[in-house]
């Protein structure tokens, strides 16, 4: 078992290998046919979306007769924590997206609280996320009713000592979500408007980094998530996201998340996303705000 769960170490290396492939001319031949920036970017959980919220869009540029994939490196630095994410995904026929992500949360100042309060020597928390998303129907650009997708995110906490000590019940959990995305052409001063709405069923504490379930609530709850952005032109998307969160642990209050982002997609092969994020109170440390940066390659 240990051997199996060490395997995701390969997840860390895979993006580098694939980035290497991207640079080789043979792999440059064909990239998917979908319109620029309509694959979204890689969210912190690996699924295509914005930064914090999965959208109904599937990653990469694969259209209905094509394969595609993405790799991404992301980092969020807020007042007392740093979250690093390595993610990769593939997309078949713009129908099914399969993703993996490894999250590493550096506890920075919380490490002292844990040592003094709980006698725990822990300076980071790791989590692996395996995601599947299926486009059920519609096309975000061309269908009047937009594009609708459903997805699963199986999350496995790799360092459960701390989450368990603060009251989390399980070291793994599965989020299920249903999501709709639609691009309204020429909607805001002639600019295209992208709107996303997602409802998620989850037991995860802080997205799963603090385990699943807790003393205040141990069951699935529905959470509302949303995002909207305006395409300044086909290379720049400016927008904001909101993610409602459960509050399962009496140890510390959990807040909703939001962000304001700008994404730059100079080419189908490359995207950069920068954001201001507000994670609210996280594990007793209040008002966690900071910056988010994500690099994504597509093939």
């Amino acid at each position: 078992m240990t051997r199996f769960f060490n395997k995701p170490r390969a997840v860390r290396v895979a993006p580098l290998l694939i980035l290497g492939l991207l640079a080789s001319p043979s792999a440059m031949a064909d990239i998917g046919s979908r319109i620029w920036a309509t694959g979204g970017v890689t969210s912190i959980e690996g699924s295509a979306g914005g930064g914090l919220v999965p959208w109904a869009l599937l990653g990469s540029y694969a259209s209905d007769e094509e394969w595609g994939g993405t790799v991404a490196l992301s980092r969020a630095e807020v007042d007392d924590y740093t979250l690093s994410v390595t993610g990769a995904g593939i997309n078949w026929n713009n129908r099914i997206e399969v993703t993996v992500a490894r999250q590493t949360l550096d506890l920075d100042s919380l490490a002292f609280t844990l040592k003094d309060g709980f006698g725990l020597e822990q300076d980071e928390l790791n989590q692996d996320i395996f995601g599947v998303k299926v486009r059920l129907f519609g096309d975000a650009l061309y269908s009047p009713w937009g594009q609708w997708s459903a997805g699963l995110q199986y999350k496995r906490q790799r360092d459960f000592t701390v989450p368990e000590a603060i009251g989390a019940r399980n070291d793994s959990g599965t989020d299920v979500y249903f999501s709709g995305s639609k691009v309204f052409f020429a909607a805001v001063f002639g600019r295209n408007l992208l709107v996303n709405a997602t409802v998620r069923g989850t037991r995860a504490n802080q997205g799963g980094l603090l385990g699943f379930g807790g003393d205040l609530n141990n069951g699935y709850e529905f959470m509302a998530e949303a995002g909207a952005g305006v395409f300044i032109n086909r290379q720049w998307l400016l927008g904001a996201e909101y993610r409602q969160k459960p509050d399962n642990l009496s140890f510390a209050r959990e807040d909703d998340w939001w962000d304001v982002f700008i994404a730059w997609v100079p080419d189908r092969r490359f995207a950069v996303t920068a954001a201001f994020v507000n994670l609210g109170d996280v594990a007793t440390l209040t008002d966690q705000q900071g910056v988010y940066l994500s690099l994504q390659g597509s093939f």
Partner: peptide
């Protein structure tokens, strides 16, 4: 197919860009 539809849409956008059509006008035509 959707792939072919996307390809035509892409080419139309590129053709409009070559002719310096402003973004808002491109979007309104699409």
């Amino acid at each position: 197919t959707n792939t072919q539809f996307n390809a035509l849409a892409e080419n139309l956008i590129l053709a409009m860009e070559e002719n310096n059509i402003p973004t808002a006008a491109q979007n309104r035509l699409i």
